[in-house]
Simulated scan of single mutants.
Amino acid sequence: MRLLLWLVALMAAAIGVAVTARFNPGNVVFFYPPHRIDMSLNLFVVLTAALFIIMYGMLRALRATVAMPAKVAAYRQRKRERDGNKGLRDALKALFEGRFGHAEKAAMRAAELPENAGLAALIGARAAHRMRQSSRRDNWLAGVVNDNSLKTARLMTMTELLVDDHQPEAALDAVAELNASGQRHIHALQWSMKAHQQAKNWPEVLRLVRSLDKHKALHPALSSRLRELAYEALLSDSSHDAESIMRVWSTVPTADRVKPYIAARAATALNARGLHDEARATAEEALRVEWDDRVVRAYRDAAGGAGSPSLLAQIEHCEAWIKQRPTDAELALTLGSLCLKQKLWGKAQRYLEQALSDASEPRMVREAHLKLAQMHEALGQHEEANAHFRQCALASIL
């Protein structure tokens, strides 16, 4: 439709020009002595228009020629940008697909564009790391050192890759640099925690776990397990004496002190250093909150000497507990062992035999037979003692 309108307008203009030219009697005369040129006004107008068109075309051609180098440079720049951006997209796609060799090659193409060089280097570093090419990974990361706009991304990438490569010291250096720049986001705390865990810096692991728990950034099961590992390492350190182990235990929050696994490890560590009173108090506090066989075993190992008030108090506590848990084999074994130590032979035999009948683990069967053998031996009943010793040996084999 538009073309038709243009044709109509062009035809109308041509008709108008033809009619006007037909009734135009004007002449144009050029004098240049001794020459004279006469022509009609219509021809002069046509020649003038033709000359204008020719001059306009020549000027446009000259302008295009002068601008040609800039246009070629702009075209090449656009081509480089297209190729660089395509290389960056291909590198990301290959990285997510797990084709790390393709990802690194595409990152090399993307790095040819200065604007993409930093991001391409981070992609290349991740790809090289996945292929276990540490030297190439470090070369990629070294290329981003001077790019301040990617400082946080570089440090986060370094931390993650170094932790994955089990280089906690280098990872912690990156974390320290990241913290110095004021960046303390959740992901950085998570990788920092992993680096400290590999470095066995357990106090710092506990601090970071508590910080991440405040932000609900850790699954409760993972948080609990990390606390257990940290406390186990701290409490199992053989370099601690009685004073230092108490100092470590005093730093544990109340909410953690009553958790069965932690309480059992603490009671075991306290028993190993002769702090039986503290071990009993720790176990009793934890058992009031949650019953656990591991804590009961540690409570049994914390028994006081024969005739001591602490041993009698332990027996009273266990007798009160066993009324609530009449089929608990671990508790019956503990009460029987305590009565045996106090030389309450009848009670000891009754509870040890109850533990033997209710035991579900070979360990408990073996220990119950051993305690019964010791009891019969103390009473001079050597035949019964030998029978239980044999049963203990058979349980050890099984």
Results as ranks from 00 to 15, higher is better:
Ala298Gln: 06
Gly380Met: 05
Lys323Cys: 08
Arg80Phe: 13
Phe96Arg: 07
Trp321Ala: 15
Met11Val: 15
Met55Tyr: 15
Ala387Asn: 15
Lys79Ala: 15
Ser310Val: 08
Gly98Met: 04
His276Glu: 14
Ser224Ala: 14
Asp173Pro: 03
Pro33Glu: 06
Lys105Pro: 05
Asp38Thr: 06
Val205Gly: 01
Thr152Ile: 14
Ala195Trp: 01
His187Ile: 13
Ala266Met: 11
Asp293Ser: 09
Arg136His: 09
Leu370Ile: 12
Ile54Lys: 05
Gln183Arg: 10
Phe100Asp: 09
Thr327Gly: 02
Pro203Ala: 04
Pro260Gly: 09
Met364Glu: 11
Gln354Tyr: 01
Leu7Ala: 10
Leu189Trp: 11
His219Ile: 03
Ala73Thr: 02
Tyr299Gln: 03
Val66Gly: 07
Val17Trp: 04
Val252Arg: 06
Leu4Phe: 08
Leu3Pro: 00
Glu232Leu: 08
Lys194Phe: 00
Asn27Lys: 09
Ser192Gln: 14
Asp301Gly: 03
Met55His: 06
Phe52His: 04
Ala121Val: 13
Glu177Cys: 10
Glu169Gln: 08
Val29Gln: 08
Ser134Gln: 12
Arg137Phe: 00
Leu229Ser: 10
Phe100Asn: 10
Asn386Tyr: 12
Leu155Gln: 00
Gly346Glu: 14
His240Arg: 06
Ala180His: 05
Val209Cys: 00
Pro326Asp: 06
Ser308Pro: 05
Leu352Phe: 02
Pro309Arg: 04
Leu178Asn: 00
Ala395His: 07
Ala176Thr: 13
Gln354Lys: 13
Phe30Met: 14
Met131Trp: 00
Leu338Pro: 02
His102Lys: 13
Lys341Pro: 04
Asp301Leu: 09
Thr65Ala: 14
Glu112Gln: 12
Leu234His: 01
Tyr231Asp: 00
Trp6Met: 03
Lys151Cys: 02
Arg63Met: 11
Arg294Leu: 07
Asp173Arg: 13
Gln342Asn: 12
Ala121Pro: 02
Val248Met: 06
Leu95Met: 03
Val289Gly: 11
Gly336Trp: 07
Leu398Trp: 14
Ala94Phe: 00
Arg80Gly: 09
Phe23His: 15
Ser40Lys: 08
Val45Phe: 14
Arg280Gly: 01
Glu353Pro: 10
Ala221Trp: 03
Ala306Ser: 11
Val209Met: 03
Asp237Phe: 05
Pro253Val: 11
Val175Phe: 09
Arg184Lys: 09
Thr254Cys: 01
Ala14Glu: 01
Trp249Gly: 15
Thr268Cys: 07
